[in-house]
């Protein structure tokens, strides 16, 4: 055997297990979503015979544009709020003394290791009509007896920000830690205002961290299902809830599949944008280094 073929065989031997596993159990099912969108449903809750366009046409359901729009603005707003909070927090953690930095990082990561469902449930019991927060707010005269804290779009937003914060803080922390703060001092020495120095130098300096934090928050938010399901109501349903409803309540798998196909397409747009941005950044980084 030629050494080249031998090397290729070795590479394939090492690559094949994970490559085949992911091709069969990840890529193939993703493609199946698109295929089943063109299948009729069957009354037993399975997938019918033959091909049809009716499933796709059923997406014209008058409620859907509203739900899709809500999914987009809620995940967009979650991303913006999360990023606005995370940047100063990441800044503070990255600039703290080493022992304090380790402690703050640990405290940030710790809730992320606890069960996702439990954290959402904890909010449900805090915001419950008989819960502590309502009593406290009533005591402060901030709300009236009949106001509802649970089952509203604002509740879903609050809990989404709560669960996504660590995912934004960590990549931002990594970016801030690498940032060279003498650049800020230089800008200040050259007469820039503090605000201008941070807006024009610090924010572009942590751009890669901002981008990945954005992606880490936006994509799971678009796919949210448990949070609107547990703390949300009818007027805070998102696409994920409809997919689950079609799957478990109506047992109409092709319809759920068509919705999932739409979500896959919507989700790949920011992902492609991110990957493109990353490539451009890699491309522009080299000439900049040469200039320095």
């Amino acid at each position: 055997m030629k050494p080249k073929t031998k090397k290729l065989l070795k590479e394939l031997g090492l690559t094949a297990p994970s490559l085949l596993w992911l091709a069969v159990f990840f890529m193939l099912p993703t493609l199946i979503i698109f295929a089943i969108s063109f299948k009729p449903s069957d009354p037993l809750g399975g997938v019918g015979q033959g091909w049809t366009l009716n499933t796709i046409l059923a997406l014209k359901n008058p409620n859907y544009p509203e739900i899709i729009w809500r999914t987009l603005w809620m995940s967009g707003l979650t991303t913006i709020i999360t990023l606005v909070i995370s940047v100063p927090v990441a800044y503070h953690i990255a600039r703290a003394k080493p022992w304090k930095r380790d402690l703050l990082l640990l405290l940030t990561i710790l809730p992320f290791w606890t069960s996702f469902l439990i954290r959402i449930f904890a909010w449900k019991s805090v915001l419950h009509p008989d819960g502590m927060l309502k009593k406290f707010l009533l005591f402060c005269n901030l709300i009236s007896e009949d106001s509802l804290l649970l089952y509203r779009p604002g509740t879903v937003l609050l809990v989404m920000v709560y669960t996504e914060l660590p995912f934004a803080i960590l990549p931002l922390y990594a970016a801030v830690e690498k940032f060279d703060f003498s650049l800020i001092e230089a800008a200040l020495d050259l007469g820039a205002g503090k605000l201008r120095a941070y807006a024009n130098i610090f924010i572009p300096g942590i751009k890669s961290g901002l981008l990945s934090a954005c992606l880490m928050v936006l994509i799971p938010s678009i796919g949210s299902y448990v949070i609107p399901d547990v703390v949300g109501g009818i007027d805070s349903m998102m696409v994920g809830n409809v997919i689950a409803q079609r799957t478990f309540v109506d047992r109409n798998l092709p319809h759920a599949s068509a919705l999932a196909a739409v979500m896959t397409i919507v989700m790949f747009l920011p992902l492609l944008y991110f990957l493109k941005g990353k490539k451009q950044e890699d491309g522009s980084a080299t000439p900049a280094k040469e200039v320095v």
Binding site: F25, F26, L28, P29, T30, I32, I33, I36, G46, V47, L215, M216, I219, P220, I222, G223, S224, Y225, G240, I243, A244, T247, L253, A256, S257, A260, M263, T264, M267, L271
Partner: peptide, 16 residues
């Protein structure tokens, strides 16, 4: 980076 719900529904459809 794929939302969990997409992994879930796609595997369900695959098994079905």
């Amino acid at each position: 980076v794929v939302p969990e719900i997409l992994l879930g529904i796609s595997l369900l459809l695959f098994f079905v």
